[in-house]
């Protein structure tokens, strides 16, 4: 699993995983560096591995039980080191639904939010967060782009790199 830095106005790293286990491990590596109030915005097609990544985050938070799909309930709350708010916006089509769900309270809360299908709602793109875009390369491999929106998320990205550094100069711009 390789991780490369990129800088194009945002702090980003790109990782390539070649199994479900590797995608979960990347989620775990990210989860280990999160903090109360952290927000992860996940995007990717059906079957890309959003839930697998989210499961890795949950494991890092010390959640050992099943991490069930929130598709039906829209939000599953799991108790870990901090609360884990696992959203799935797959079935939502209206931005007012986010308000009615009281989503901003969770985003500003003391837990970690992982939001699947976050790209359906442009309102979420202004939230300080780590966006995670998962693209299917082939049956097993995924290209996973992590983009930091805010300094604390830049550090999460940097920690994934071998030297633990993420600077503009090393990004080859």
């Amino acid at each position: 699993m390789g991780v490369l830095p990129i800088f194009n106005g945002k702090w980003m790293v790109v990782a390539r995983t070649c199994s479900e286990e590797q995608t979960e491990a990347l989620g775990r590596a990210v989860g280990e560096r999160l903090f109360p109030g952290a927000v992860l915005l996940l995007e990717g097609a059906l079957g890309a591995g959003k839930s697998v990544f989210a499961r890795g985050v949950a494991r890092a938070l010390g959640i050992s039980g099943p991490v069930r799909s929130p598709t039906f309930t829209i939000l599953n709350v799991l108790e870990g080191r901090w609360p884990f708010y696992h959203f799935d916006l797959y079935r939502l089509d209206d931005e007012t639904a986010l308000l009615e769900l009281g989503m901003e309270e969770y985003l500003d809360g003391e837990g970690v939010c992982a939001v699947e299908w976050a790209d359906k709602f442009s309102a979420l793109s202004t939230v300080p967060s780590l966006s995670i875009r998962i693209v299917r390369v082939d049956e097993h491999c995924r290209e996973i782009m992590l983009a930091a929106e805010g300094l604390e998320y830049k550090n999460v990205c940097a920690a994934l790199l071998p030297k633990g550094e993420l600077t503009g100069a090393s990004a080859g711009d």
Partner: peptide, 11 residues
């Protein structure tokens, strides 16, 4: 018409 349950409409 939405291809699924729409919770906000549902409540």
């Amino acid at each position: 018409k939405y291809g699924g349950v729409v919770p906000e409409i549902a409540s």
